[in-house]
Design a binder for these strands. Structure first.
Length: 798
RNA sequence: GCGGGUAUGGCGGAAUUGGCAGACGCGCUAGACUUAGGAUCUAGUGUCCUUGACGUGCAGGUUCAACUCCUGUUACCCGCACCA
């Protein structure tokens, strides 16, 4: 009887004891680095969604090992983060204790699935031995001028007196108390990611990410070409207002200007602005809006005219009014725009609301009009109908007259790197009243999180660490005077920005990884993760890596070669699994009842790997039936050592298909082609030893335990984990004799049997004489016969 | 609005990349074995007016031949977004 519990445990122990999955750093074999995003070890444990992607990469790794690769398939824990901190606040337990527990549970669950991780390289981002190097790398950023302090708005709940992460806000309200969230300015550490925009864009050419992932990155970086134009302020010709525009060709149509409420021009001219009170209250109003409200496209335009300030259109020399409005953002371009209401929806809406002149400069449809057309009312640009020509000409004019210049901007922002939280890597900086910011000397790393009992943030928005004087009060490393440690910690994205490098040399206590190890493993060959990380995590990691490359600490420009994304596993009702909906499937319970091999097979078979798919209990049962049939095949094994004659070609085809499909994320058809093979074995009622061994090897990556066991029980050879991947013979992919379709005028009328070496004439002959085909061509004239060798015959009749 | 993607039986999904649409699985129907069946086995299962016709979101087109290529269109999903 098939006792999966015993069998699965037995082989898991066998693999571990024989260190089958331990990657070597000095192998003669070619390397293969398969990486799956490491999980946050939550208290709720493993999700069936984890099982899907982990099994996929496990299968890939197992196949690659049999194909002769030295495979690195590691696992670790992304263990900093809010949930552990929340748990700590509630229960007054140090988060590291909770994390330890959770990791234990999580790891046990992974091991029960028989995943072939190299556990000797396991670590957590919360290990001081790991975050020592995260801090070390931060200091490198600082050394190279890429880490700096700046005032940035944070989400602030005035009720709880706490800074909030975006995830803690629900529709503008605090998740805990329901109060309104406002923006509060705070000094924060930033990483200069924006200056890497072009490199991050161009680096994508060096990768083989799925197109949808590349596109998500390109969108996020948001490159746009245009021009900077300076408008002088009438009352004060020394001062000018600089705008960014992608359409300098419409400069003749500018009838007013708009600046962001945060724009410094307002403060600089507060004396001159006659309605300063009104402006101030508008600024206050804006501050209260969070990004979501401000970004709501459906709302009416609001704004205030800056009374007393006038700008001059540098081309027409006309005086035009300046407004401040929250539809212009300080964070993009220059925080100021030239408004062309005739050809921009937003400017048009604003002009209508405030009754401002609208001047058409492009011929075409109804206003506002944004299409192609010849320029009018535009002086030296009149009549030009090609947009790029007009832009070029205007930019040239601006540059010659020192009124502006060509410019490229990016949506990508610098990375806000401070969090006012306890459970993160301490930022290794010290503030001294005399020396300013001083980095913690390298030899004093890691800066370790203290053991305390209170994890509540302070009510002025500082990290809980700010309450622990014994921790933050230190001597300045430079002058020795009393100084203060930075009490902010790093964001959750920090530790996950370089973990793939650490796996290459996980126990190195001299360096984050040795250059030899980095050179040997190179790029991650295959990186799998969720679509939700296609922008942020993936960009942070690429930025971090490119920086290390630029300062000579890693040998490759890009960290990842192939990046793929799995689809979500939904509940049986087609909705996202959640406790409240009661549709959560617990992988543990499935392993208990059906075994890991059945669960793994089902998750690979359930659907297109890249698409989301609903869980199906019946589908799971179908996979169990398949696994049981595989088990029963052992009763049909003959003494024959070669492939059975009847199935030889099918087996060769299956080897090819399975090997290919694994590389193209087509795990579902891997399983289906193996099911077809089982159907055939059962049909002929016997299976040769070689048939069985090959079949078991092909199934091994997906269902490793049962296949190892059957291989042993039937004494077919060495354990599969130490055996070679089967090879197919190109000549044996097609049968000697096979069926070919015959069409008449493109419609299927019958089939004929043809031999492999039948030429076109023979096929034609056979086709014309086919019974049913004859009927359809009898009294008609044959105009043409198309014969595609080995595929189809089409007879065209009149 | 910009960028990307998807659409195939009752359901999940196949289709060697232009060559027999619906592989494989689920579900369903009938039968066998059985005290029993939510176990197992066998057969069937796209639709219809069933010698045949129709059929891959919709409308056209190219071709001997279109799920596949081209043009237009609709719906849904994802990313970005008052981004200037």
């Amino acid at each position: 009887m098939y006792n999966f519990k015993e069998i699965e445990k037995k082989w898991q122990i066998f693999w571990e004891e024989n260190r089958v999955f331990h990657a070597k750093n000095d192998s003669e074999k070619p390397k293969y680095y398969a990486l799956i995003e490491f999980p946050y070890p939550s208290g709720t444990g493993l999700h069936v969604g984890h099982v899907r992607s982990y099994t996929a990469l496990d299968a890939m790794s197992r196949m690659k090992r049999l194909q002769g690769y030295n495979v690195l398939f590691p696992m670790g824990w992304d263990a900093f983060g809010l949930p552990a901190e929340g748990y700590a606040i509630k229960n007054h337990i140090h988060p590291k204790e909770a994390v330890k527990e959770n990791i234990k549970t999580f790891k046990g669950q992974l091991q029960n699935l028989g995943l072939s991780f190299d556990w000797s390289r396991e670590f957590a981002t919360t290990d001081p031995e790991y975050y020592k190097w995260t801090q070390w790398q931060f200091l490198k950023f600082y050394e190279h001028g890429l880490a700096y302090k700046a005032k940035k708005a944070i989400n602030w709940c005035p009720n709880c007196k706490i800074g909030l992460a975006n995830e803690e806000i629900e529709a503008g309200h605090c998740e805990r108390c329901g109060g309104e969230v406002i923006q509060k300015e705070k000094e924060q550490w930033m990483l200069g990611m924006r200056s890497y925009a072009e490199e991050l864009l161009e680096g994508l050419d060096d990768t083989n990410f799925l197109d949808k992932i590349k596109n998500a990155q390109i969108n996020w970086i948001g490159k746009s070409k245009g021009a900077l134009v300076d408008f002088s302020i009438f009352e004060n010709s020394k001062q000018s207002l600089r705008v960014f525009t992608t359409r300098p060709d419409t400069l003749y149509g500018v009838t007013f200007m708009v600046i962001a409420p945060e724009h410094p021009l307002i403060k600089e001219n507060q004396e001159k602005i006659k309605n300063m009170d009104e402006v101030r209250s508008y600024q206050e109003q804006t501050k209260r809006k969070n990004e979501m409200e401000r970004g709501d496209l459906n709302k009416d335009k609001t704004g205030v005219k800056l009374d007393g300030l006038t700008a001059v259109n540098p081309i027409t020399k006309e005086n035009i009014p300046i407004f401040t409005a929250d539809y212009v953002m300080m964070g993009y371009g220059t925080g100021a725009i030239m408004a062309v209401p005739a050809h921009d929806d937003r400017d048009y809406d604003f002009a209508m609301k405030f009754n401002l002149p609208i001047k058409r400069v492009i011929e075409g449809g109804e206003l506002p009009y944004a299409g192609e057309g010849a320029l009018v009312n535009s002086g030296f640009l009149n009549g030009i109908s090609k947009k790029s020509d007009a832009i070029d000409k205007m930019v040239k004019y601006l540059e010659e007259n020192h009124l502006g210049k060509q410019e490229t901007t990016y949506r990508l922002q610098d990375w806000v790197f401070s969090r006012q939280r306890f459970w993160g890597e301490p930022i290794p900086m010290i503030y001294c009243d005399d020396c300013g910011w001083v980095p913690v000397p390298y030899e004093n790393l890691p800066v370790v999180l203290p053991d305390v009992a209170e994890y509540e943030p302070t009510d002025n928005g500082e990290s809980p660490l700010a309450k622990i004087k014994s921790w933050w009060e230190v001597d300045c490393p430079k002058c020795g005077k009393k100084a203060r440690r930075e009490t902010d910690t790093m964001p959750n994205w920090a530790g996950s920005s370089w973990y793939y490098l650490r796996y290459m040399d996980a126990s190195n206590d001299k360096e984050f990884a040795s250059m030899d190890a980095l050179k040997y493993w190179g790029k991650v060959d295959w990186y799998n993760g969720g679509m939700e990380h296609a922008t942020r995590h993936l960009l942070y990691a690429r930025f971090w890596h490119r920086f290390l490359y630029n300062i000579g600490l890693v040998p490759f420009k890009e960290p990842f070669d192939v990046r793929v994304a799995h689809g979500m596993v939904l509940g049986e009702n087609g909705e996202k699994m959640s406790k409240s909906k009661g549709n959560v499937v617990n992988p543990n319970a499935i392993v208990e009842e059906y075994g890991a091999d059945t669960l793994r097979t089902y998750e690979m078979f359930m659907g297109d790997y890249e698409k989301e798919v609903a869980w199906s209990e019946n589908g799971l049962k179908g996979s169990r039936r398949f696994i049981e049939r595989v088990w029963k095949l052992q009763e049909m094994v003959t003494a024959e050592e070669e492939y059975s004659k009847e199935l030889e070609n099918l087996i060769h085809r299956t080897i090819k298909k399975v090997s290919d499909d694994f590389l193209h994320l087509k795990y579902n058809t891997v399983v289906s082609s193996l099911m077809i093979l089982v159907n055939e074995f059962e049909k002929i009622g016997k299976i040769s030893r070689k048939d069985y061994r090959t079949f078991l090897t092909l199934l091994y990556p997906i269902a490793p335990h049962i296949t190892e066991e059957l291989n042993e029980v039937c004494k077919l050879g060495k354990p599969l984990c130490m055996s070679p991947w089967p090879k197919f013979d190109e000549d044996k992919l097609t049968d000697e004799e096979f069926e070919v379709a015959v069409q008449v005028n493109g419609k299927l009328r019958g089939t004929i049997m043809v031999k492999k070496d039948d030429d076109e004439e023979v096929m034609k002959e056979k086709a014309i004489n086919q019974e049913n085909v004859k009927k359809h061509i009898e009294d008609k004239e044959i105009a043409k016969v198309i014969v595609i060798k080995g595929k189809i015959v089409n007879i065209v009749v009149k």
